[in-house]
Computed example of a mutant assay.
Amino acid sequence: MSSKARVFVIEADQVVRSALGYILSERHETFTFAEPADALTKAARSAPDVVLVGSSLIADDGAETVAMLARKLNRAGIVVVADSVKAPLALAGLRQGAEAIIAKPITFDGVTHAVESVYARRGTEPGLAKSPRLVPTEISR
Rank of each mutant, 00 (worst) to 15 (best):
A92V: 12
F108D: 14
P88Q: 13
V111F: 03
V85Q: 13
I106C: 07
G97K: 15
R121K: 10
G93D: 08
Y119V: 01
S84A: 14
V85W: 00
P88N: 14
V85I: 13
R95P: 00
V115T: 04
P88W: 11
A100N: 10
Q96F: 00
D109K: 03
A92W: 06
G93C: 09
A100Q: 05
K104S: 09
V81L: 10
G110R: 11
K104V: 07
S117C: 07
V111E: 02
L94C: 06
A114W: 04
H113K: 15
E99Q: 15
H113G: 01
I106W: 02
R95F: 08
Y119W: 13
D109E: 14
K104W: 00
G97Q: 11
P105H: 04
V118H: 03
A87K: 06
I101C: 01
G93Q: 05
P88C: 13
T107N: 08
P88E: 15
S84I: 13
L89A: 14
A82V: 08
L91E: 15
A92G: 15
V111Y: 01
D109F: 07
T107G: 13
G97S: 09
I101A: 02
A87V: 06
S84G: 12
D109L: 14
V115K: 10
A114I: 07
D109Q: 11
R95T: 12
D83K: 01
E99V: 07
L89N: 13
E116C: 03
K86F: 10
I106F: 01
V85P: 11
A120S: 09
K86N: 15
R95N: 13
A120F: 06
I102H: 01
I101T: 05
V118N: 01
H113C: 08
V80F: 03
A120L: 12
V118D: 02
V115H: 04
Q96A: 15
A98M: 09
